[in-house]
Design a protein around this nucleic acid. Structure first.
Lengths: 275, 275
DNA sequence: CCAGGGGTGAAAATACCTTTCATGGGTGAG
DNA sequence: CTCACCCATGAAAGGTATTTTCACCCCTGG
């Protein structure tokens, strides 16, 4: 991507609707470049030519006009009425899911799933909100007959980790990628030959040094009232769900009966239907 | 509108997306007419020319693809490739969020928020995956200086519940609305005069008998590989987030400094930035 | 300071869209 | 029944948007 191509790309990103109304020549003028550059940019962006980029742009414009605020949702303010809070939150989380899905490396995911499906034992490390995500994963894995733990205590995590060896899997969940309490156990597992997976919003952070496979969660901007934990949690849960379903697919023969068994086991914990 | 113009108009109406991909010549051929007729049709439809009709068509196509396909996402199959699993999952969870936001009763939410903001003590009851949601809420409420607990053990929950009285709040989270282990503590709290809230997918289920305020989560269809727990969890988390933000708004004076305090407290638990 | 490579835009070439115009079929009056 | 007129229609010309080509020049590294 060269400098002038970036200018074009920026202009397009900044105002898709406006650019959709422009011809090559118009867009070239607006960005202070030439028609050739505009066409080249369209190519780089994955379209056969400007014509198609323009069509895509028109689509995008229509979409976000109908969805309205979606992509550009304003931050949640202190004096927003609750109805607006609900709408904005739902909107932001939806965006977060879309971003995560788009940014997830399927080959990494595939590798992680393969390791999980045949693991002797699975450890999931996470602190705070990330620990809840880990527990969610563990609950699901247990239901399909795998052996998994999500120690909430950092000391327990490390003592667990040193029991792992080749054939086991350790998963670290940390948004920042710099949570020592999570990195330490992952490193211990890594050093002992276990397959390690990192679920983080920062694929370049320290935690990935000890991870065989890195799954990237989306890093949505946070606002004062909406701590980062919210969007990172949403993102992490999606990744975790993907892992689970991937494993369930791979081990379908054993997973399916295990799942229905666990349903039945829970049945009598519910009161009979009233109405 | 002449006969051959009608043919063109019909073709466009029948398959906007397909026609958007066609040039004048292509559309003329497909409809067995001439380019001139296509252009004339575009004029009649209110566009300056075919080019503009085509752009509008692209927009329309994108719009109904985004609004349309979502609702009819196919179930995740055992042999879906991972990339497709990711896409479908993200899609379904997005849909789930949208449904929940649309179905949430703001007045009930507002009442629940009001109760929480002034509560002496808050208890959140949930079992299994719902307990994790409860813990998520508790973690957040603690961060803004409220006193909250999410006992994971049903016995603990009941013994906690009998301590509550007027001015306290109890929240029950159960998708089915029929989980005895959750209903029991809520009932105990209800009987002792605490304000009770139910977060459930079944607003007519037993749990709501003991709830002053009912928050409804969406009940997405589940598939074999995708247990109900997934979508109910997504839905519950959105409701819980809304509660939290609502409370944070109401108690902004005290919530804001409490939030920043908790950030600072965590800062030294992270390793310094490397790169 | 020079040589090489690549980014860049002017201009030619092409594809697409628009307009014009001749044709033919249909319709109503004679 | 026939004729004349009108208008729908498509072929082809004309014009505009897009694509390609190519030479220039800037920037980088030696």
């Amino acid at each position: 991507m060269t400098r002038s191509m970036q200018r074009v790309a920026e202009a397009v990103a900044a105002d898709p609707a406006g650019c959709a109304a422009l011809t090559v020549t118009g867009l070239a003028e607006r960005t202070g470049t030439s028609e050739a550059t505009v066409v080249r940019t369209a190519r780089v962006l994955g379209y056969p030519g400007y014509r198609d980029l323009r069509l895509a742009l028109a689509g995008l414009a229509a979409q976000q006009q109908s969805g309205g605020a979606p992509a550009v949702t304003a931050d949640i303010a202190v004096d927003d009425p609750l109805a607006e809070v609900v709408a904005k939150l739902a909107q932001e989380e939806q965006q977060c899911l879309a971003d995560t899905a788009a940014g997830l490396d399927t080959s990494q995911l595939d590798a992680a799933v393969a390791a999980l499906a045949t693991a002797r034992r699975i450890d999931v490390y996470g602190i705070g909100a990330s620990n809840l995500v880990g527990q969610d994963l563990v609950q699901k894995l247990l239901r399909i007959g795998l052996i998994a733990h999500a120690p909430g205590d950092p000391h327990l995590a490390v003592t667990n980790a040193v029991q792992l060896r080749a054939g086991d899997v350790a998963i670290a969940i940390t948004h920042s990628g710099r949570t020592d309490d999570v990195i330490e156990p992952l490193r211990a597992a890594f050093d002992r030959g276990a397959t390690t997976v990192a679920i983080t919003g920062r694929p370049d952070a320290e935690v990935t040094q000890y991870a065989d496979h890195v799954l990237t969660t989306s890093t949505a901007r946070e606002s004062e009232l909406r701590p980062a934990a919210m969007s990172s949690r949403t993102s992490q849960l999606l990744v975790v769900d993907c892992l689970f379903i991937g494993v369930a697919q791979r081990t379908y023969e054993s997973a399916a009966p295990a799942l229905s068994d666990s349903y039945q086991a829970l049945a009598h914990r519910h009161s009979p239907r009233h109405s």
